[in-house]
Amino acid sequence: MKKFINHPDAVVREALIGLSAAHPDLRVDLDGPYAARADAPRAGKVALVSGGGSGHEPMHAGFVGLGMLDAACPGEVFTSPVPDQIVAASRAVDGGAGVVHIVKNYTGDVMNFQLAADLLGDGGIEVQTVLVNDDVAVEDSTWTAGRRGTGATMLVEKIAGALAETGAGAAAVAAMGTRVNEASGSFAVALTACTTPAAGRPGFELPEDEMEVGVGIHGEPGRRREQLLPARDIAAMSLEAIMAAKPVASGEDVIVLMNGLGGTPLIELYLLYGEVAGMLEAAGVRIARNLVGDYVTSLDMAGMSLTVCRADAEMLRLWDAPVRTPALRWGV
């Protein structure tokens, strides 16, 4: 598999060098490594710190900036960051009003952020944690590690980040993040596997006429493999799975994220969004806000994830609040 890289071991570091060169609003510490707002720490503002494996760009470093994250810790590709870098990032942006960690629900992420929160607590920095677990393809049961954190992570980071910008306290910011997570459901379908730089070949083989249903964002196979269906049926299957787990009533507002997993052309995402929009309209649900594009990716995987968040007026107001990050910017 061909890639624009110099050496598999250097991919994360060299991408951060590029991120830093492209975005002077960020302060990129290559030794952490982490990316922080150049104007952090800001006295009296709750600091939002997220992170996770690399390979999901623009998440998370692309969401660092005004109205969203204060810092992001990129791990190796698909590997959670280590406690030391989470501690370093949290200390770098702590403005004295507390730190909120936004953590996707994966075994490794949860462990490393927990170890970091313990270390920070020992050093006098109180950490509140928002756990994101929006992927409805996985049953939340004793038979699994629990639902995965996927597309809703960026909604949590946007809305909680906007609240933090208003001067709200850490508990309120964390509670808002949790509210957004609970209001959100996601479901993903893949047409190809992805290829990590280190492995150099796709994680699995998928015949031309088949698709992986219920995939995550780490190139792992999905819950099941099925015959490829028309986009309309894939959109319907995804929306039904989300609505079954996170029902939305007629007359309610939603934010819809039609997200590409890295290897899907925008034309296909818009086609899928059109299908979803039609189905929601038929159900009397109003799409108050939407995003279509690559926001939470899985390297070069051809695939899509749909996220539906039942949004109240406060969430929508915070969604509309100014944001200035590499990957999301409006109102400024």
């Binding site: 494996g53 791990g75 190796e76 590997t79 959670s80 960051p81 280590v82 406690p83 030391d84 994966y106 075994t107 490794g108 462990m111 490393n112 170890l115």
Partner: peptide, 12 residues
Amino acid sequence: LVSRVGGASGPL
């Protein structure tokens, strides 16, 4: 290992 690996393997 805790400081350098990440993921679940490092902490475990």
